[in-house]
Simulated scan of single mutants.
Amino acid sequence: MNFKRAILGFVKWVLTITYLVIALSFVSKREHQVTCSGINIEISDSLQNAFITKADVLRTIERYHSNLIGIPIKIINTLKIEQSLGEMQAASKVTVYKTSNGKLSVIIEQRKPMVRIINRKGESYYIDQEGQILPLSSKFTSHVMIINGNIDEPYKIEPYIKITDWAKDSNKETLPLICKLFDFAKHINSDKFWSAQISQVYVDDSNNIELIPRVGPHTVLLGSLDEYKEKLEKLKLFYKNALPEEGWNKYKQINLKYRNQIVCTKR
């Protein structure tokens, strides 16, 4: 009885292995026969950010291969396509894969501009949330906070530069102003109240930084960026407690430079 069971088990095992070998050979043969019938492109946040278009993606893919349509899907090197698309300045993450019906799927996540810089020389560029520099686009303008004025960067403005790299070997005294401004912009962007209120930052020098709000005909003299979180908290209390009673049109400037006090200049 045990012998028969052993024989039966062995036969089942052989049949299973034979089935798998035949199935795999069939799949392999079919994969060789399947040709690329199209390219599906998905670009995240394409309504909010249009730095990368489907046409840009197709042009980049065509540099790898002039025409993928009609060639065996098996010979397409998705890794090389990912690497090529990953070199696009506005691409944050790229995924390329093949589907069983012969489609090539491309998914791209775009970098999200956080702030636009216009420096002393008139050079303009974006910085994303990771500190990556992004060039302006002729096809799209991102509506983010603007920081302009007397700004000198310790580097040549080029793609792939990260602002955060310049902060690694710096202390509080030697930290470049652009790094401090990036940190300030991150704080504004992460706060629902301030991201809705502050539209522009003007830099006269490192000790005289001015905020231009969306609401109210006044400007805010922040002074330096030292202890800016405490200064903003003080300003928020002033907005909530004083301005509703005194009126938003009463002052032309709100000065936060002095410790523990707010100095206002009437219109």
Rank of each mutant, 00 (worst) to 15 (best):
T99W: 05
K252G: 03
Y97E: 14
K180W: 11
G131I: 06
Y251R: 02
Y160D: 11
E123D: 09
S92K: 13
I43S: 04
Q83T: 00
L181Q: 05
Q110P: 03
F26P: 00
D183M: 10
P113T: 06
R111K: 11
E245V: 03
L256Q: 07
N67P: 01
Y125A: 03
F10H: 03
L85C: 04
I151S: 04
I262S: 04
A185N: 04
T16Q: 07
F238T: 02
N241P: 01
R120W: 05
S224K: 05
N2M: 13
I161K: 08
I61C: 00
K186L: 15
L221Q: 07
R63G: 01
F26N: 11
Y228I: 06
V144Y: 03
E31V: 04
V263A: 13
Q129L: 14
N249M: 11
H143D: 14
L85K: 01
D45R: 09
V220T: 08
P176N: 01
L68V: 02
I41A: 02
S44C: 09
I151Y: 01
K12T: 06
A185C: 11
N171T: 13
S170W: 04
N77E: 10
A91S: 11
K103A: 13
I161E: 07
E42M: 11
K74A: 14
G216L: 05
I178G: 03
L177S: 06
S142V: 15
R63F: 05
E153N: 12
Y19T: 15
P113E: 01
W248D: 05
M1A: 15
V27S: 09
K168Q: 13
K236C: 07
G102H: 06
N77R: 08
E31Q: 12
V263D: 07
G122A: 07
Q200T: 00
F182A: 04
T164E: 15
I127W: 00
Q48S: 14
K121Q: 14
A50L: 09
G102Q: 05
H218L: 08
V11Y: 02
I157L: 09
N208C: 09
T219F: 04
P244M: 06
Q89N: 12
T95N: 11
I43D: 03
K234M: 15
V21I: 15
D45Y: 06
V27D: 08
A55N: 10
Q200R: 12
L175K: 10
R5T: 05
I188T: 05
